[in-house]
Structures are given as structure tokens and as C-alpha cells.
Design a binder for these strands. Structure first.
Lengths: 222, 222
DNA sequence: AAAGTTTGACTGAACATTCAGTCTAGATTG
DNA sequence: CAATCTAGACTGAATGTTCAGTCAAACTTT
């Protein structure tokens, strides 16, 4: 009944195995989609046997759900980290929008977004996934809200309603994410970024000029 | 190889069978989700046997894909019809936004939106579904563009870039649709509607005052 | 018009496959 | 050696699809 690995010392090797499997699961999910992710695929990707996967995650659903949660937590964590390194609220908001619109991870460019699509499609019938999504959404919206309030405090932003702005912007970003995930030729990442930024800058009344095409990739992110 | 029904007279009974099955498929998809829709379920829902379903739609995937296309076409058709009955561009845009934000079909309130989530999640790996989505998206965006251009022609709207507005608004509406589909308590239909309308009115510079709560349901739609 | 013939809609019973999850026996480690 | 871990083979259930026909209606032929 207890999790297989509770070795206290040195973040047990078992814990590493777990994460290895979670990452393997994510790879497969992003490639084949949640519905077509077989335990055998994950096992192979992780260089082990199906039995071991079940040994660590009692059930397939738990493995996949946990994997999605793992991915979202990781995404959020790097987000917080990046934002913390930026002083002005306008810069933070810019980075936040860039994170949703401009892909930067090498493996499977659109992987993260495809994961969101699965996440949404699964949520209505899978309470575990729904919980992950809910938390993810809430945190993200709260992040926007906080930035807006800070920016208003500092006099950078106009006094719009922070809650409503957060909801609207996050909806807009979700919509852009859909287009990016589905590789819509009319809404490529740079354009999605421009449009979202134009909305944010317009609403909050801060200056922002579209970067020229050649600068777009190197906007202070590595 | 030919379609089962080519009886010229009276829209063949076979064609009715087909539609009956498509609708049954939609019911099941909205209830269980695409991935968990068994052809046995569809058959039962349509009062026939699995074999007959396959008889009409060579394969499960074709049935489901066709069902989704069927639904989207129907949705678009009623949309066009409704919009055609409205004179002013501002009214048309309002109706369009209402259609995406405010549910009005009795059966399975959020059904249509849940279908979109499946549509999106399926698109990356299912060319047939991807084609349906692409067409759907394009038509919808084009509808927005046309309304905007007409409104500008008539002097109702500010001269914003119609293409960019269409992309941004449709992304915003997609995002709102996600929240509505997932029944997010912070983004209920009326609020989504208000926020989207505020964006549209703000950008295009037409007057719009939030309807009071009690008026919202009866805004000239039946 | 009666007898045969074709055609398309439909069915029940198999078939074949795919997988999640189990079992057992062996390896590893402390 | 005892506890933990690992893997390959296996099983049982679910389910998409096929198939060999049945049935009724329309059409042809005599």
C-alpha cells in the first residue's frame, strides 16, 4: 500500500526510477497522446519492463495522471524562477506571455502545448486530471494577478481590474496555445506573442513595441 | 464502395439511418468522450447492432470523425442563420460571442464545448479530425473578419486591423470556451460573455453596456 | 401476373487483437 | 539470508471487425 520508495537517505535511487518513468511517460504521451500511451511503451522508453512500471504506479491511469501533474509542476516552477529574476512588472508580464507563446525547449517543440490539449480533454471525466488542471490554472491566473497588482502599485500599469484582466489574459493565452499546439499556419508563435502583448500593453497602458523579427528570439532569455 | 443509400427519392431511408447513427455517436462522445466511445454504445443508442454501424461507416474512426464533422457543420450552419437575421454589425458580433459563451441547447449543456476539447486533443494525430478543425476555425475567423469589415464600412467600428482582431478574438473565445467546458467556477458563461464583449467593444469602439444579471438570458435570442 | 432473380439492409456469431495487470522465479543489496 | 527489486511469460477481459447468411422489396422474365 505504501509507495515503493520511502528510502529516506539521499533521495533514494527508487525516487530516481520514479522520475525516470514519469519522464518516459511524458515523452510517450507527447508523441502518441494520452489515450494511445501503453504501459509497454513507457517501460521500453525507460528501459525496463511493464511489470516494473505497475510496481511503481499501481495503475496505468495513476502513472499518466501523475506524469501530467509532474510536467505541470515543473513548468510552473521554471516559470516562477524566471519571473523572479525580472525586476519590473512589465518585464515579468512580457516573460510570462513569452513563456506561453514562444517555445524554447528543444525536444518536441510543441510537446508542452499538446499536453495541455490532452489535459483539457481528459479533465471532464477524470477527477485526478481535473485537479491538476485546476491547480495549474489557478496558479497561473494568480501569477498574472500578482504581477498586475505589483505593477499598479509601482505606477507602471493602469488601474484596470486585476481579476478580470487575469481571467481575460489567461483565456487569450489558452486560445493562442491551442493554435500554436495545432500548428495553425495563420497563428505562429511570434504572431501569437505580438497579439497577446499588444492586448496586455493596451489594457495596462505600458509601452511596448513589437520586436523586429530578428530580435525576437533573443529577448533576454537563454 | 458506393454509399449504401443512393435512392434518389425522398432523401433515402438509409440516409436517415446514417444521421441517426451520427447523432447517436455524438451523444455518446459528449457523454463518455471520444476515446471511450465504443461502437457497441453507439449501436445501442441508435437501437441497432454494432455490425450495422460498421456496415455504414467502414470503421470506428470514420464514424467518430464524421460525427464530429457533422456536429461542427450543424453548429456553423445555425450560426450563419442567426447572424443573417441581424442587421447591424455590432449586433452580429454580439450574437457571435453569445453563441460561443452562452449555452442554450437543452441536452447536455456543455456538450458542444466538450466536443471541441476532444477535437483539439485529437487533431495532432488524426488527419481527418485535423481537417474538420481547420475548416471550422477558418470559417469562424472569416465570419468575424467579415463582420468587422462590414462594421467599419458602415462606420460602426474603429479601423483596427480586421485580420488581427479576428485572430485575437477567436483565440479569446477559444480560451473562454475551455473554461466554460471545464466548468471553471471563476469563469461562468455570463462572465465569459461580459469579458469577451468588453474586449470587442473596447477594440472596435462601439457602445456596449453589460446587461444586468436578470436581462442576460433574454437578450433577443430564443 | 406468377415465378424467378437481383439488390441492399440488416444480423448473430465468431475471430483476432490488443493490453492492463498478475505470477513466478531470479537478481541485487544491505 | 532476508528484503527489496526486476523481468519475461502469461492471462483474462474488452472490443473492433469480419463473415456467412436472412429477409424484404424491387425488378425481370416468361
Amino acid at each position: 500500500m505504501t509507495r515503493p520508495a520511502d528510502n529516506a537517505e539521499a533521495a533514494g535511487a527508487a525516487e530516481q526510477r520514479r522520475e525516470q518513468m514519469l519522464r518516459a511517460a511524458l515523452d510517450v504521451i507527447m508523441e502518441r497522446g494520452y489515450a494511445d500511451t501503453r504501459i509497454a511503451d513507457v517501460a521500453e522508453h525507460a528501459g525496463t519492463s511493464p511489470a516494473l512500471v505497475i510496481y511503481y504506479f499501481k495503475t496505468r491511469d495513476q502513472l499518466l495522471t501523475e506524469a501530467i501533474g509532474y510536467a505541470e509542476d515543473a513548468w510552473y516552477a521554471t516559470g516562477v524562477q524566471r519571473l523572479a529574476a525580472i525586476p519590473a512588472a512589465a518585464g515579468q508580464l512580457t516573460e510570462l506571455i513569452a513563456m506561453t507563446c514562444l517555445p524554447d525547449t528543444d525536444p518536441l517543440p510543441r510537446g508542452e502545448w499538446l499536453l495541455w490539449l490532452d489535459l483539457w480533454a481528459l479533465s471532464p471525466r477524470n477527477p485526478g486530471v481535473a485537479a491538476v488542471r485546476r491547480k495549474f490554472d489557478e496558479r497561473w491566473r494568480e501569477a498574472i494577478r500578482t504581477i498586475v497588482l505589483a505593477g499598479q502599485e509601482a505606477g507602471e500599469f493602469s488601474p484596470v481590474d486585476a481579476d478580470e484582466f487575469a481571467i481575460t489574459l489567461s483565456a487569450l493565452l489558452d486560445g493562442m496555445a491551442v493554435q500554436i499546439a495545432l500548428d495553425d499556419p495563420d497563428v505562429q508563435p511570434p504572431r501569437a506573442y505580438d497579439l497577446a502583448m499588444r492586448y496586455a500593453a493596451g489594457q495596462l497602458g505600458f509601452d511596448w513595441k513589437p520586436a523586429s523579427a530578428r530580435d525576437r528570439r533573443s529577448q533576454g532569455r537563454r
